[in-house]
């Protein structure tokens, strides 16, 4: 009966916005509103920013550093939008870091060795990323094996692919004779906003709309929450999951192309442990790692937090060798916090 009484007050300990109706929002007290997950992450984002601004005013608040920070948040965030769909659908993709390097190398190879024009090579990377996602999703769903294992295998295979295709050394001079490529990937639009930020904002808006407002988005939530219930209701859960893998792969292709254009390089060692940053962003953003709930707004803020933590570790002078330790600790802490909040909610 405890559940029934909870229903009348929508008494969630720390709800994410996707689980709150407008009427429930209106009935919430200030105290309850302050416990909305996305608001909590927003506060954390501001707090970390303020802390770094105060602790390292000379290095953190420089134009150079802030632009770098925004870029890395954008790269993490674009892929994290796809990963949010995957998490909500009850799957994950560990291969995004290696895929990122592989696709950046492919853009370099297509342009430098094959003479492709920049936009064709970029579309090629997006299509190839989608195809890799199709493979990841197809193997996972057809053979009914955990995506954890499939994409762990691909984490290794795609890194190998990047090394083989590039011969182990970065492909340089990408787009040297095609200034438009840099304009769309590395330059500052209107003189201030780095291009990747605009890509990121665009992806966030489209991704947020698709997840929250379309039938596909509804089916992603249903598939991850209770796949059997979704299938019994006629939702094609296999297609839904594969679509999420394909979307994630395509977004990795976009980030690969942006990186190649901005750095004018396709590096086979790029994106090492990038998957950890992306997964951290999604989990910090409040998306349930067991599927069924989460939001793009949360992931947007989670990417900001994950990006600032990585940036802050460097600025605070953390030993380069010990940074992976801190990154791992952040992920585990984020999961612990998330799980303890969910247990309190009883959902």
């Amino acid at each position: 009966m405890a559940r029934a009484s909870a229903a009348q007050t929508d008494d969630l300990a720390s709800p994410t916005l996707d689980t709150l109706s407008p009427s429930a929002l209106r009935r919430m007290s200030l105290g309850q509103i302050l416990r909305i997950r996305e608001l909590g992450i927003f506060v954390a984002t501001v707090a970390i920013f303020a802390f770094l601004a105060i602790a390292r005013p000379d290095t953190f608040l420089t134009e150079f550093n802030l632009l770098n920070l925004l870029r890395s948040i954008s790269f993490i965030g674009i892929v994290a939008v796809g990963m949010t769909f995957l998490f909500i659908a009850g799957e994950l993709d560990l291969s995004v870091g290696s895929m990122y390097a592989f696709l950046a190398v492919m853009v370099g190879w297509l342009m430098v060795d094959q003479g492709w024009v920049w936009w064709a090579a970029s579309l090629g990377a997006v299509a190839l990323g989608a195809a890799i996602g199709l493979f990841n999703g197809g193997v996972t769903t057809y053979f009914r094996i955990p995506s954890f294992i499939v994409t762990l295998g691909m984490l290794s295979a795609l890194r190998g692919g990047a090394l083989v295709r590039s011969g182990g050394t970065p492909i340089t001079g990408v787009g040297g004779d095609q200034p438009d490529f840099y304009r769309f990937t590395g330059a500052q639009a209107f003189g201030v906003v780095p291009a990747p930020i605009l890509w990121f904002l665009g992806i966030v808006l489209v991704g947020g709309w698709v997840l929250a407002k379309t039938r596909f988005g509804y089916h992603v939530y249903a598939t991850g929450d209770n796949a059997r219930a979704a299938a019994n209701a006629g939702i094609r859960t296999v297609r839904v999951k594969i679509a999420c893998f394909v979307m994630t792969g395509a977004l990795v292709g976009l980030v690969g192309a942006i990186t190649a254009g901005w750095q004018r390089t396709g590096s086979p060692t790029a994106g090492n442990q990038f998957e950890l940053d992306v997964i951290a962003a999604v989990i910090i953003g409040g998306t349930n790692l067991f599927g069924g709930s989460g939001s793009i707004l949360g992931t947007f803020l989670g990417a900001a937090v994950a990006g600032m933590i990585a940036n802050g570790l460097i600025l605070l002078g953390a030993d380069i060798n010990s940074q992976p330790i801190a990154k791992g600790a952040v992920i585990i802490l984020a999961v612990l916090l998330d799980v303890s909040i969910r247990r309190r909610q009883g959902l």
Binding site: D18, Y218, Y221, A222, D225, N226, A230, N232, G292
Partner: peptide, 17 residues
Amino acid sequence: ALVDHRDVAANVFLGRE
């Protein structure tokens, strides 16, 4: 066969939104 993290309306219409 219900989806716990979605509301009653979404569950009544599940798969036929």
